[in-house]
């Protein structure tokens, strides 16, 4: 686990919260087959779309950001599954052919 990198992301999240802004956390909770980032990798997203960290090699970040903004707005956590079997495979499927599950939640 890339501990220090994730620590920086979480410290950043703490900083944002202390400033009074809202922030969502996206975490890779499961992967199948080849995937660019291991389980536990995380990313934080602000309401304006600004983000830190990563959950894939760039393939699904846009979709995660969009959903994270929704989570900040409706306060509901989300679980997103990406992969070749996904309906959205054409748009956001992983080029490596793997599958990945991402959990998105508010930091509150």
């Amino acid at each position: 686990m890339n501990r220090k990198e994730d620590q920086n992301i979480l410290s950043k999240a703490q900083e944002i919260l202390l400033k009074g802004s809202e922030v969502a956390l996206a975490t890779v909770i499961s992967t199948w087959g080849s995937s660019p980032r291991p389980v536990g990798s995380c990313m934080i997203i602000k309401k304006n779309g600004e983000f830190h960290g990563s959950v894939s090699g760039g393939c699904i970040e846009a979709e995660v950001i969009e959903n994270a903004i929704r989570t900040i707005e409706d306060k509901k956590p989300r679980r997103l599954d990406f992969g070749v079997s996904n309906d959205k495979a054409w748009e956001v499927g992983l080029a490596c052919g793997g599958k990945i599950s991402v959990f998105i939640e508010n930091l509150e």
Binding site: Q7, L10, Q14, L17, E105, L107, E108
Partner: peptide, 10 residues
């Protein structure tokens, strides 16, 4: 995630 959890992790 609750902020308490985040603080404890850090």
């Amino acid at each position: 995630m609750k902020i308490n959890t985040l603080n404890k992790i850090l």
